[in-house]
């Protein structure tokens, strides 16, 4: 701002010189914009358009018919169920982790932060594999689980576990930089005025972080509903029972039932679009509260 003030004091000719000297030739600018737009069109816009076009290839009637298939309906139900369990679990974990890491200084903090980020550097397939190795019939736990009639793999608990593993860092990652930036003075003030720990959290910290929290939950939910690799390994692909929406897309596609595959895919694409719109709105309105918005 100070810099703008000094330039406005100088003559307009000078300002024009500075502008010319620190910006590209018009041709270079248009070329760069053109390149960027082509790239976005080829890799982002056209794939999205293709999903909707393929789904509506035979008209909206068939689109609705394939969506009302009971197997598809079961997949939608399972996807929602998994998200409803996995997201709140990681929400609680995220708040606890951010509270410990952002509000306190302790030994091994950097190491703990690295451990929390681990799932991001593990292939989704490996995230599923570790649960197969843990609970499968060849594992230590497998025979014991079998004799007690507990089904984890190829059932809902396994799908939930794999999803929780994959979405583990989302909320914590969003909250840690935000709460570190906010410091502890608000909480200290509340405590010195006689508030209890829970009151401080509920009435001081939570209002301070609510938009950042919502942002993290949004990203966590998008990943939880859309996870494919990890869930695919543990699900067992039992039709109408353990297929989530992304798995249903794969099965329909591999059966050359393209309209149905893309119809289910449109629902997931709509989920992605809603996520993006909400995310942009949050970024626009509460950018100060979304510290890590630009640093996934």
């Amino acid at each position: 701002m100070a810099h703008d003030a000094t330039t406005s004091q100088t003559s307009s000719g000078n300002t024009e010189l500075v502008r010319v000297a620190t910006s590209e030739h018009r041709l270079a600018r248009y070329t760069l914009i053109g390149l960027a737009l082509c790239f976005v069109a080829l890799f982002l816009v056209l794939p999205l358009a293709a999903v909707f076009r393929e789904a509506l290839r035979n008209g909206p009637g068939e689109f609705l018919t394939v969506l009302s298939d009971p197997e598809t309906f079961a997949a939608i139900e399972l996807t929602l169920l998994v998200a409803v369990i996995a997201v709140p679990l990681n929400l609680v974990f995220g708040i606890a982790a951010a509270w410990a890491i952002a509000k306190f200084e302790f030994k091994g903090k950097a190491f703990l932060t690295t451990l929390i980020d681990l799932p991001f550097s593990v292939s989704p397939v490996i995230s599923g594999l570790v649960f197969v190795l843990l609970f499968g019939s060849h594992s230590l736990l497998g025979p014991w689980l079998q004799s007690h009639g507990i089904q984890i793999l190829f059932a809902v608990p396994g799908i939930v576990l794999a999803t929780v593993f994959v979405t583990f860092p989302f909320v914590a990652r969003e909250l840690i930089p935000l709460m570190q930036e906010q410091g502890t003075s608000d909480e200290e003030a509340a405590l010195s005025l006689g508030a209890s720990g829970w009151q401080t959290f509920w009435y001081v910290t939570l209002p301070n972080i609510k938009w950042g929290l919502l942002y993290g939950v949004l990203l966590c939910n998008a990943r939880a509903m859309g996870e494919f690799g990890a869930v695919s390994v543990v699900s067992g692909h039992i039709r109408g029972l353990t297929n989530t929406m992304p798995l249903q897309v794969e099965i329909l596609y591999n059966e050359y039932n393209f309209v149905a595959a893309f119809a289910v895919a449109t629902l997931l694409a709509l989920l992605a679009l809603v996520t993006l719109v909400l995310k942009s709105l949050l970024e626009m309105k509460y950018s100060a509260q979304i510290a890590a918005s630009r640093r996934h």
Partner: peptide, 13 residues
């Protein structure tokens, strides 16, 4: 906003 599409769009889609 579109740049974040790959984060939000399920990989199978």
């Amino acid at each position: 906003a579109m740049v974040d599409l790959p984060f939000a769009l399920p990989t199978a889609v």
